[in-house]
Design a protein around this nucleic acid. Sequence first.
RNA 1: GCCCGGAUGGCGGAAUUGGCAGACGCGCUGGCCUUAGGAGCCAGUGGCCGCAAGGCCGUGCAGGUUCAAGUCCUGUUCCGGGCACCA
Length: 849
Amino acid sequence: MTEQEQPVTTAREERYDAQRIEQKWFDRWMSDPSHYAAEADSTKPKYYVLEMLPYPSGVLHMGHVRNYAIGDVLARFMWMNGYNVLHPMGWDAFGLPAENAAIKNNTPPREWTLANIAAMKKQFNRLGFAFDWSREVTTCLPEYYRWNQWFFLKMFESGLAYRKKSRVNWCPQCCTVLANEQVVNGNCWRHEDTAVEQRELEQWFLKITKYADELLRDLDKLPAWPERVRTMQRNWIGRSAGTLVDFDLGGKVGSAGSTITVFTTRVDTIFGATSVQLAPEHPIVKDMTARDADLRAKVDELIAEQRKAREIGDIGAIEKHGVFTGRYAKNPYNGEAVPVWVANYILMDYGTGAIMSVPAHDERDYEFAAKYNLEVRLVILPQSSDPEETMAEPALPFTTMDGILVNSGAFSGLSCADAIQKMSALAEEKGFGKATVTFRLRDWGISRQRYWGTPIPMVYCNKDGVMPVAEKDLPVILPENVNITLTGGSPLLNVPEFLNTTCPKCGGPARRETDTMDTFVDSSWYFYRYADAHNDKAPFDKAKIAYWFGAEGIDQYIGGVEHAILHLIYSRFWTKFMRDLGLVKNDEPVKRLFSQGMVIKDGAKMSKNLGNVVSPDEMIARYGADSARLYSLFAAPPDRDMDWQDTGIEGIHRFLGRVYRFFLRNAQPEHPDWRKPVPENLPAEARAIQRKLHQTIHRVTDDFQGRWHFNTCIAAVMELLNEVSGVEDSKGAIPVSLIAEVQRTIALLLAPMAPYLAHELWEMIGEKSNLMKAPWPKYDAALAALDEIEIPVQVNGKLRSVVVVPSDATDDQVKAAAVADEKVRSSIAGKEVLKVIVVSKKLVNIVVR
RNA sequence: GCCCGGAUGGCGGAAUUGGCAGACGCGCUGGCCUUAGGAGCCAGUGGCCGCAAGGCCGUGCAGGUUCAAGUCCUGUUCCGGGCACCA
């Protein structure tokens, strides 16, 4: 039998053996450590693509595979398009799980973490991710965290790092403090069923609020970020413009003075204020309760309620109530004395902890006033284009800004917006208030009472007080062989050789800070370190940052939306601080951000509890890394949640098998025509293949550059394969040179997504160059064009026929063909043709009656 | 309560600019090949009516704009996410 006549079988040698192929290329790639390294002094344009660094838990999950597959595809695509690509990877290696593991397995956190890193690195490499390991960053190593300490000292010098006693969120499971950002619905973000407690502790804070305005404003500089993320950050920063107004108590109550300053966004309603409401923890309340045990008991109850609600995480759930203090305060606008209350719905940590209560124009105040029978005084009436509505008695509470002031002295008749401006100006002029802006954003508390983190480089001297460690003495090394317990307080308190030190100023005995830094410090600037990972003189060299970051930062950052607030707002803050230090020129760290969706199975996020976890190792063992990667790209567009289906990856694996066999049977690199150009004037069958080929290049390239719908890229290659899979039956009609072009192109198009198989195919067709950096195929519009096009013909908007016309047919010719079509004629027979709409090259619609 | 997403066959999804709804894959059905099949190949596969040709219906729901709507507008339901006594 000749080769062509052999029956279609999958003999042993024809089977797509992913393990064999992948092992072969794995060995080759791993033998060259600089295989994926960015070029040092390149004349090529740079492209910095980054995926968020993982926590080294020791085991990769499918979410990782998906996240890093997306980044890897992009990096490889950019290489093929001639860019100098930086695609680094590192480890977010500090954090509590290492301590938990230490307790459980009696393994030191460092050992445990480094072993996990080694294991995960192996998995990453096995998946074929093109990471430049020469720039690997591991945040738990002193060569990295010394720069956390260095930045901390710089912040301390600039007054951005400060210490204060404050009420903090305390997770009893973690035995440490949490940042506001780490409290989710009143629970710990790591222990979703553990309520966060409130404690008073001395803490280090970073003054992120200094940049609140800029962090908000510069969101407008980030059009290539998902709108969702920008909105979340906007809400988190929570800018609110309003007015401060002093209400006079007519005499000192205690040390907190005789003035209650309220914050309001609606000073225009102040003539309707019928009480002042204080937060239970307001300092003036303390004064007022000092000699009134009865009042104190009631206030303590309010405090307890608030605390409880905060711990449950639903502060809105408690019923509003309060207590009258017996005192009155003077409204400076009309001189009226209004009663002062303490209420459980007033928060001490927003605004000034005091409000004016305007029941007629605020929902909460209305609810409160109704309960205690406080006066409701209407001072705004509606203004509407409808005269019926204008100045009519509105339903209460009337909270909109579209209104006119009444009963407001000299301000009556003004619009709300005008009144706010004029009344704020008056306050400033008379000295009883001013326009102001408050933020929801709080300073970032970074102290953690844990061992496995960056030591805060400060010491406490009895003589000199709080002193920074000298820069030359960095790093402050985290000691090893520490007994780790979760009993509250840092394990470092029990390490005398760490704890006891000398004062940098006087040389006398001093005690080290034992708190370590929040691990979000580590991830706030790690991506700069990749540009100069081994610098031991500075966090990085400015010139290298200037090259890789340019004016706008990382070209493409990819990660989960769960970091939309925490990591990304801290990183933006850190960049602005570094810019002010003169270290970087970019205002923002990340130009383009992409948030990929989660991996779901059986309708839920994969989790051990639900038992719906799919192990990447198992998938790789069964189908190979290419199939795992390709399926994670094929199952859904990358920004959407992806539903994992075990049969889906089988389908992808079958597809790769079909590709492999198509090459196996049709590659003839020794054929004299193999490298010749494809002849012109191809027979129809060959021409169809050539057209499909160029259409496919077009579709895939478009999707890679534009909307990143890798699922349709893969579908396009599948269609191409379906189109050409019949060539074996038509030997002769298809020129060898065209088969060669098809095979070269398929290898190139698959190279970013399924690198192992693509490299094997590239070799099978006799190519010697490095596929990883081979030029991306060019599409030829003329070759992709159709000779004839199908035009659907509708009658009254319903499809009735399809006519085939030459692709250069005029609208009139198309119309003529449509009207001449037999099916069309029979469906318009006996009816009056009102109109014929011809959409060029698209469609004909005949409107009849 | 406010702010973002989303809803398309049995399933994942496609339709990029208002112009043939269901590409591609899974699953299913039938066939081929095989000692065998968890391999491979071919064909069919939105629903309803019909032997067929063909017809009617169909993108969460109710309206609207248009020659033409999954796509635009108004309202609404459900699902997911974020924020939330924020003054």
